[in-house]
Simulated assay, not measured.
Amino acid sequence: MADLQDDLHTAAEVGRADEPYPQEAVVVGPEEYRPVSDPDDAPLDRARAVLAAHPVCDGYSGLPWTLRGLPWYDLDLGESAVDADLPRLRKGQVGAVFWSLHLPDGHDGGRALATTLEQLDLAQGVVAAHEAGLRPARTAGEVVDARNCGRVAVLFGPAGAPALGDSLSVLRSLHALGVRVLTLTGTSWAGPAGLTRFGEEVVREMNRLGMVADLSYASASTIRRTLVVSKAPVLFTRSGARDLRPHPANLPDDLLAAVGEAKGLCLVPLTAEQAGPTVRDVADHLDHVRTVAGPDCVGLSGTYDTGGAHPQELRDPSCYPRLIAELLRRGWEESDVALLTWGNVQRVLRASAFTAHLARERRKPSTATITTLDG
């Protein structure tokens, strides 16, 4: 069904890959909009109503790695050992979530690919075991299908670039297995000095496949070069505003402006370390990124189950309505909230797929190697 739904968007409808895409929304009946009796509750009730129509696409979750260490768990009924079980995802009106396949420090070299595949296998098994609440998704259409069936769509990624082992064949294999986001850090071809010639070829092959580049924690040189080379929008899965809170993954205003010009997407993390200790601090970051990069270029990254501390009132995904209520109090229009929670991620997924469709007509699978290009 998802493939058919994607095919319904003709080239005339979607336009160029860097243009805004029509926003998908869940049809919400009048009963979702409850009358408000207490004026103090108005923003929270209004937030829940907006999220019923435009649920949260959460850009980063560390759940697969957390589940590796648990002997037993039940995400359906609720699991105290994790942040993001199904009851809390439903309460927070989360419609889709990216499950990270990142590796802890020290996992590199030949072991990186094996550990990434182990995480992917576990993640796919978890989704299959909770089919009443979760559904795997690889495209924007499949994300919408999952939501309309009452499930939370799970997208696999970001994975770490060290898993490739400098092999474009491995990149294609990971894509075939369902990985849709790759973080361009921690390799010889995407490091402090920026992208090498082979790194640029990796980005081009990702464009051809429809795999999205994640640039959180990447060097400024890598970010700037990727924005030039990539024909599809890029993601920053865990990046706030450096002008508000210094952190290696947060972006200075000049890079935020460049992301806006390239129609990329900065997903602000809900962590105390990067955004601050209160829900107001997170809202400040969202305000700042929206102002500098634009309303089409800001989104949400829960970063739950990553071991980090979260701001007050945002301890788990059930608290998303509190954040949205804070934004509504600040005067955000519902249309901008809809972009923040749902529409901007959908745009990036659709643009990535559209770019891949065009690229496959022009390019065959790359046979380049790091030896031939970076020799």
Rank of each mutant, 00 (worst) to 15 (best):
R68F: 11
T66A: 14
G78I: 00
D76H: 08
E79L: 02
R88D: 03
A96C: 15
F98T: 00
P71C: 10
G69H: 15
Q93P: 01
K91P: 00
V97D: 01
W99E: 13
E79Q: 06
D76C: 06
Y73F: 15
Y73H: 15
A84E: 14
G69T: 15
H102P: 02
L101P: 00
G92N: 05
T66P: 03
S80Y: 08
W72G: 08
R88N: 08
K91T: 07
D83L: 11
W72C: 07
T66C: 12
H102S: 07
G69D: 14
S100Y: 01
D76R: 10
F98H: 04
V94C: 08
E79N: 01
L75E: 05
L77H: 14
Y73P: 11
R68P: 02
D74A: 00
G69S: 15
G92K: 05
R88F: 08
L89I: 11
L101G: 02
S100E: 06
K91H: 09
W72Q: 14
W99L: 13
H102D: 08
Q93S: 12
R88A: 07
V82T: 01
H102M: 08
G95N: 13
D83F: 10
G92T: 03
E79K: 03
Y73Q: 10
L101I: 04
L86V: 14
Y73L: 12
T66G: 08
R88C: 03
D74Q: 07
G95V: 14
T66N: 04
R68K: 15
H102F: 05
L86G: 07
T66V: 15
L75I: 04
K91G: 02
D76L: 05
P71R: 09
D83I: 08
D83V: 10
L89G: 05
L67R: 00
G69R: 15
R88G: 01
G69P: 12
R68H: 11
L67V: 02
P71F: 05
S100I: 02
V97R: 02
D85C: 06
Q93R: 12
D74N: 12
W72P: 10
L75R: 04
W99R: 12
D76S: 10
G69K: 15
T66D: 09
